[in-house]
Amino acid sequence: MSLLQQPVQPALRLSRQAIRQHARQLRQQLPAATRASAATELVQQVFDQAELTSKQHFALYLANDAELNTEPLIKALWQAGKDVYLPVLHPFCPGYLLFLHYDSTTELRANHFGIPEPRLNCANVIPVAQLDVIFAPLVAFDAAGNRLGMGGGFYDRTLAQLPRHSPCQVIGLAHNCQQVAAVPVEPWDIPLQQVITPAKYFDFR
């Protein structure tokens, strides 16, 4: 059992930065074969959920920093006739994301983090509230659905725009090793409704 998955006493609770650093190291150390099989297993986990396969508008992301590879899932969603959207750094509201339609013909460019994103075209933007499913990247998560990201707060700010009782499902995607005993929670954190790993589907609702 990883140190981060062991029960944590309140006085010994690890900082967000310590958890973030260790979880990133764990996923970066995964062998290439494990990462490849994880991406395939993710597709099966998603398509095993009838609640998800009935949806139409899916926001995803392109993997960075050894995140769980979403490309096979994106291709599977395209083949199933679903609409896929990718996040783009908001050009006028720093710290926020826009979601743009993405298909095999979409031109990508690297943002200032070096992450590929679609070229901004207002005609391809979908309001966050119109998305059916948002698959969010994360660094670590716990059994209560608390999410730890990279520290920029982009998803927390953007997800805070969803109406209180929005039907949009916000689901974290992670390698199995990214589950930790407890994520220290801040007031601005938006908890996840579900997390999907290659091995398990977590429902926190």
Rank of each mutant, 00 (worst) to 15 (best):
N111V: 10
N121T: 01
A63F: 10
F204M: 07
E67H: 12
Q25P: 07
I196D: 04
P198F: 11
Y155C: 04
A63D: 14
E67D: 03
Y61D: 07
Q169G: 00
F113R: 11
G151V: 06
L42I: 12
Q194Y: 06
L162R: 06
N124Q: 15
A33W: 13
E186F: 06
A123Q: 13
Y96C: 14
L120Q: 08
V183F: 09
N111Y: 11
G81P: 09
V128I: 15
I19A: 02
A63T: 09
Q6F: 00
G172D: 08
Q28T: 05
A123E: 13
P94V: 07
A36Q: 15
I126T: 14
D142H: 02
A66W: 08
L159Q: 06
L97Y: 13
F202Q: 05
L131W: 04
L4P: 03
V43E: 08
E41G: 00
P167R: 05
G149Q: 09
R147F: 06
V8M: 08
N176L: 01
A36R: 15
N121F: 04
F47H: 10
P167H: 02
D132C: 12
D103K: 09
F92V: 13
L4D: 02
H101Q: 14
D156A: 03
L98D: 10
C177Y: 03
A23W: 03
K75E: 15
V170D: 00
T197A: 06
T158Y: 05
A80P: 06
A32Y: 07
A199H: 11
G151W: 07
I171R: 02
I126Q: 01
Q194S: 14
P118M: 09
K55R: 15
S37C: 13
V180M: 00
L26T: 07
H112E: 12
M1L: 02
L138V: 08
R16V: 05
F113I: 01
L77P: 14
I74W: 03
L68Q: 02
A129G: 02
Q21I: 09
P91D: 14
Q25C: 06
L173N: 03
